[in-house]
Write a protein that binds this DNA or RNA. Structure first.
Lengths: 348, 348
DNA sequence: TAGCCCCTGGACAACGTTGTCAGCGGCAGG
DNA sequence: CCTGCCGCTGACAACGTTGTCCAGGGGCTA
């Protein structure tokens, strides 16, 4: 045993310094490798030796340093998740689903929010790569993911969720934004609407564009024109959405129904409609808690966020297990849930 | 550019093997340490040398291996967050707030869900410690955290949030559960209620007990009795809460008002009340999105989840910056938001 | 021109763990 | 009694990075 801190016992160590296997080995009177064997449950250790080692471990409060282990082994048993905003209720279940799958595979989840900022996304992704995560699940904020090329080539499995990767070919798990929006708008048309507004997320975001395309397609299929004033894309903050909604409703010839491009938009639109006397039909993309308890209940195009996360994570681990193949694109169906708001007839 | 075909030049590497500083140094024709200097922006490198190194870095797709760096430096620049369930809307903003603070301090956030299972909490916490996170933010699931003793002694800063640690002395950031519940119940009493039910989370959970204590105190302060049938603690799954609510409302002498112990409970209670003709007053602990849009709006005791997370993370980083001191307990106030459901008069 | 210092660059050890390999004692078979 | 094998154990190198220390060269001063 060696002396360490000024004037104290053998086991005392400076604050902030942790005992290592070497310390454990010294205390147990065995070799370094034997400690390693015990810690990792490898065979070939006498019960008596093992007991001595275990005693030393608890006495010293030893905990294996995974950084060293990772360095040595090359695998980190962790995956990274980069999403837009954890505070958005859409991402909670998604994140949780990814975590559950990771856990089932013995991996830890490291996650971060890009705040919808491409630079921040890249910064985060590269930080995770520097940590040598085994794989990445990314909800893209940017439109160009070529910076991931070297990482993917180096063996970092990567799956994109909710939106496809930009300018590289990679696995992606998506919801059927186009089909969902088309169904939702067709639903409104079926209930007699002719003048339908679309309020969506920023142009440039894949889902926003797909949903807009779905809207336009449904209108076209019904032979209806789309006026410029009926389409508004932009940030989903309440102020912008409020303004857009008001503009459509206060126009000389107001829209009689609205399609909201995601849950953030829907919530604000509901608030605006609530403040107005005349009922306006509404279908929103994304389901959300309590949508059924509002009056009228909100008709939505539901996508299963948890399923999205689960599917992506499972695909990721299949890749890690060596399922090498062409990048795949998985598209999950959406489901229209009619609750009332989408079945209102045109006011006029 | 060099050839990378199988079995060729020095710079070719197997799939899954990443270039190291040594490779970069060889390619740039400089020493190992010089590469390190460039990568870390240390002074003392000629512009020309730096350029050569940077070229080699991009050519090889080099990315520093943070595992090795961490091992060498001892600090990981990452903190761990262990919470109950990311899918619970209460934790999204909390997690996000912690992340923002971590980011401001240049640290990465690793998080995991305990699923309210003490064993899983411990497993997660220890896994994070093995990764040598610099600090931990923990929303406890268990009641005994002595297992954290060695870690804290070894310098892992730890802050508990939402509930205090069990059987060890540690920093904690809490909401005023007791005061909030007391205020909420007093609010119901002020509106004429005498028979008030309390539906809360599992006994053993600190907040559940504090809120129950607040309920009992408010009742006692008003000189009102509390019948056993008016108090129900247990899991917050819909089935249990439904049953408990129904039992209180269908009793021979039903309660005229309910206090819900957290947002999960509130949501289910709202659903049950919606199915019944007679209005029942309701105050819920925790605010939630759309609470204002229901009819009646739901009166709540709001706690600021983001503030909770922010405060905890800031305290954590103060500790990491060396603010050694006695463990502190910070209690944040709650706020009653009256929206209608809490102001309904007794039915009878 | 000698002497000195500064600037740049590199050799080397160390961080804590795991994989490889070799040693040692005992036991069975020849 | 020797050989060969097996079960257990430990010495040693390696993972990729950073900190320490030293060497060489160029510019400056005396």
């Amino acid at each position: 045993m060696t002396e360490t801190a000024p004037g104290t016992a053998t086991t005392s160590r400076r604050y902030g310094t942790r005992p290592t296997m070497k310390d454990v080995a010294a205390r147990a009177g065995v070799g370094l490798k034997t400690v390693s064997r015990v810690v990792n449950g490898e065979p070939g250790v006498t019960p008596d030796t093992e007991r001595r080692v275990r005693e030393a471990i608890t006495a010293l409060g030893f905990r294996r340093n995974d950084s060293a282990r990772i360095l040595r082994k090359g695998r980190t048993a962790s995956i990274g998740l980069v999403l837009e905003d954890l505070a958005d209720p859409f991402y909670g279940p998604l994140s949780r689903a990814v975590e559950e799958v990771a856990r089932a595979h013995g991996a830890l989840l490291i996650n971060g929010s890009s705040a919808e900022d491409p630079e921040r996304e890249q910064e985060l992704v590269l930080a995770l790569c520097a940590r040598r995560v085994d794989g990445l699940v990314v909800i893209p904020a940017g439109r160009d993911h070529r910076y991931l090329g070297p990482e993917i080539a180096a063996g970092v499995a990567t799956v994109f969720v909710d939106r496809p990767a930009g300018r590289i070919d990679a696995d992606a798990v998506l919801s059927d934004s186009f089909g969902g929006a088309r169904d939702g708008v067709a639903h409104l048309i079926a209930h007699g609407h002719r003048r339908i507004g679309f309020i969506g997320d920023q142009p440039g975001i894949h889902t926003a564009e797909e949903r807009l395309r779905g809207y336009r397609t449904a209108m076209a299929e019904a032979g209806l024109p789309v006026e410029d004033a009926w389409v508004s894309l932009g940030p989903t903050d309440p102020a912008r959405v409020r303004a857009a909604t008001a503009a459509m409703l206060d126009a000389p010839e107001p829209v009689t129904a609205l399609f909201a491009g995601n849950n953030r938009v829907t919530v604000t639109v509901v608030r605006v409609l609530n403040e107005r006397p005349a009922p306006v039909a509404l279908v929103g993309f994304d389901d959300f808690e309590l949508a059924d308890l509002l009056s009228p209940g909100i008709t939505v195009i539901a996508q299963d966020a948890a399923q999205l996360g689960r599917t992506a994570a499972e695909l990721l681990f299949r890749r890690l297990d060596g399922a090498g193949a062409e990048p795949r694109r998985v598209v999950l169906p959406t489901r229209l849930i009619a609750r009332g708001s989408g079945e209102l007839p045109p006011a006029a």
